[in-house]
């Protein structure tokens, strides 16, 4: 049973009070000029997922609390949550540094902008 804490309202509950919304930090390719978006970019946005064995970053929703979406860092092997953070925020810097594979690539140039926790 996963135990989740909402970083928005502070509610603490098991996974049935929340809802997992899949991978976090998926940026939609610029939508003001759709004709500039290639098929590959659109595919990456819609379908390609990091799916790491280990540290992962996800969206969750506080279904039975405040109803807000937020972000969580979770290990997909131990299932342990490492951090909960706001939906517009980046994960804590030390977690961005621990990320592996395609997540590490994704965070490489964002580490500077991240906040220390």
């Amino acid at each position: 049973m996963l135990v989740v804490t909402c970083p928005v309202c502070g509610v603490h509950g098991d996974e049935t009070d929340f809802h997992c919304g899949g991978q976090a930090h998926v940026a939609r390719p610029a939508s003001t000029r759709p004709e500039n978006v290639t098929d590959a970019e659109q595919r990456d946005y819609l379908f390609i997922r990091h799916n790491p064995k280990g540290l992962h970053f996800e969206r969750w929703r506080c279904d039975r609390g405040c109803g807000k979406w937020f972000h969580a860092a979770r290990d997909t092997v131990s299932l342990e949550f490492k951090a909960f953070y706001g939906v517009t925020e980046l994960p804590p810097v030390e977690l961005m540094k621990q990320a592996t594979g395609t997540w590490a690539e994704f965070f490489k140039d964002k580490i500077k902008a991240g906040k220390a926790s």
């Binding site: 899949g22 991978q23 595919r43 990456d44 379908f47 390609i48 997922r49 990091h50 799916n51 790491p52 064995k53 997909t76 594979g101 395609t102």
Partner: peptide
Amino acid sequence: GHTSVVMQMAGVNMPIES
């Protein structure tokens, strides 16, 4: 279930969630 992990070894990103 390990497709993404194995394909990553060849540098291919997959449209898969495990």
